[in-house]
């Protein structure tokens, strides 16, 4: 399937919009990084805890971080479909955290 095929099936944007939109992710990067760090830290704690308290703290941390990552991704889908840019979302989240 070539670009022309994608165009004919209506998958691409209209030609006059090509190259005019900056492709930004609507994922809130600081929050996503925090969730990723939490998941990795959770994994390390699980291993390092050797079945003790740290293992369960790690498991909880992992699950919370995982759900957070999913929530961030779902929010990004909603923002993307509304047409918001990543910068707008990031700005909004920064404003929210300041207030």
């Amino acid at each position: 399937m070539s670009l022309e095929d994608l165009e004919r099936t209506g998958i691409t944007l209209p030609r006059d919009k090509w190259g005019k939109r900056k492709l930004n992710s609507t994922v809130n990067r600081p929050l996503f990084l925090a969730a990723a760090a939490g998941a990795i830290a959770g994994g390390i704690l699980m291993y390092w805890g050797n079945g003790g308290v740290a293992t369960w703290v790690g498991a909880m941390l992992f699950l919370v971080s995982f759900f957070a990552a999913v929530a961030i991704a779902l929010r990004a889908v909603a923002a993307q479909c509304r047409g918001a840019t990543g910068n707008q979302t990031a700005d909004a989240s920064q404003r929210a955290s300041r207030s």
Partner: peptide, 13 residues
């Protein structure tokens, strides 16, 4: 094709 497609989700990083 990034500038030609209509994405519902764009991955970060």
């Amino acid at each position: 094709y990034g500038d030609k497609l209509d994405y519902g989700f764009v991955m970060p990083f």
